[in-house]
């Protein structure tokens, strides 16, 4: 219940003004604690975080529809385990960004390091630059859209979700893939074991078009993309497939 008079003004003001956290002055632990105190609520406040300077585990474990803006480059595991929040990194992200994300949106304006979106179950991860090796490793339902290219072993052992690569993919794409779907616009240096190209049907063009729109990627023609998926030969070990391991 809102108060009256001066109290009401104050509360209204705090709703409008973003929380500004300078990580040179506040520890990551204190920041994350403040964010976790809102977990389980419907709080939609804005959080402005400055000077991440490669610090680890910035804004992990959020479980509320917060809007978090991070100005600068982050270190390991930024946005990990995210649920409901919209997290934007105005810089590059270190290894394991958005790992194990459950829902919400993590957007990286720069490049992402190794294993972006590892094991993530849901939500949308948008990388506006390039992603490094093992992007989407063991992804379990997340959607990942990369405007640039991805490094080797993209979508390694990916189980569910969609990985969209608007640039090129390095060697070993989709190795030991389960049911995740991969769309690539550029060149694929090489497919991993049990990953094959599959035809693009109308339903796939629709799906891809929706993902690109959701990620805010414009000016791309879905007809330029190819689709890759699992040949489903490695689900169970078969001695005839030993060479593929």
């Amino acid at each position: 219940m809102l108060g009256t008079g001066a109290g009401e003004d104050l509360q209204l003001e705090s709703l409008m003004t973003p929380h500004c956290i300078d990580l040179e002055a506040t520890s990551v632990r204190d920041l994350n604690q403040a964010l976790h105190e809102l977990n389980g609520t419907q709080e939609k406040s804005d959080w402005q975080i400055t000077n991440p300077k490669g610090r680890h585990a910035v804004a992990v474990g959020i479980d509320a529809p917060l809007n978090v803006n991070i100005d600068g480059h982050t270190g390991y595991y930024c946005g990990g385990m995210n649920k409901h929040a919209t997290i934007t990194i105005n810089g590059n992200a270190g290894p394991g960004v958005a790992e194990n994300m459950m829902s919400g949106l993590v957007r990286i304006r720069g490049n992402a390091s190794q294993y972006a979106g590892a094991t993530a179950h849901g939500g949308l991860l948008v990388i506006e630059g390039n992603a490094s090796s093992r992007c989407g490793i063991s992804m379990k339902g997340v959607d990942i859209v990369v405007r640039g290219s991805v490094g080797h072993m993209g979508a390694f052992m990916a189980q569910a979700g969609r990985l969209v690569i608007c640039g090129d993919a390095a060697d070993g794409l989709g190795d030991s893939l389960y049911e995740a779907r991969i769309y690539v616009r550029g060149k694929v240096a090489g497919l991993g074991a049990d990953c094959i190209e599959k035809p693009m049907g109308a339903e796939h063009r629709r799906e891809l078009s929706g993902l690109l729109a959701k990620a805010g990627m414009t000016g791309l023609d879905v007809a330029q993309f190819r689709r890759y998926g699992s040949a489903r030969k490695l689900y169970n070990f078969n001695i005839d497939n030993v060479d593929a391991y």
């Binding site: 300077k53 490669g54 480059h73 270190g75 590059n92 270190g94 490049n111 390091s113 080797h152």
Partner: peptide, 22 residues
């Protein structure tokens, strides 16, 4: 090994950063 070791250098905010390829 990590960006945080580079962040302490003068002008790091505007440096061109990349990950060396394998």
């Amino acid at each position: 090994s990590e960006y945080r070791a580079i962040a302490v250098l003068p002008g790091a905010d505007s440096a061109e950063c990349w990950e060396p390829a394998p």
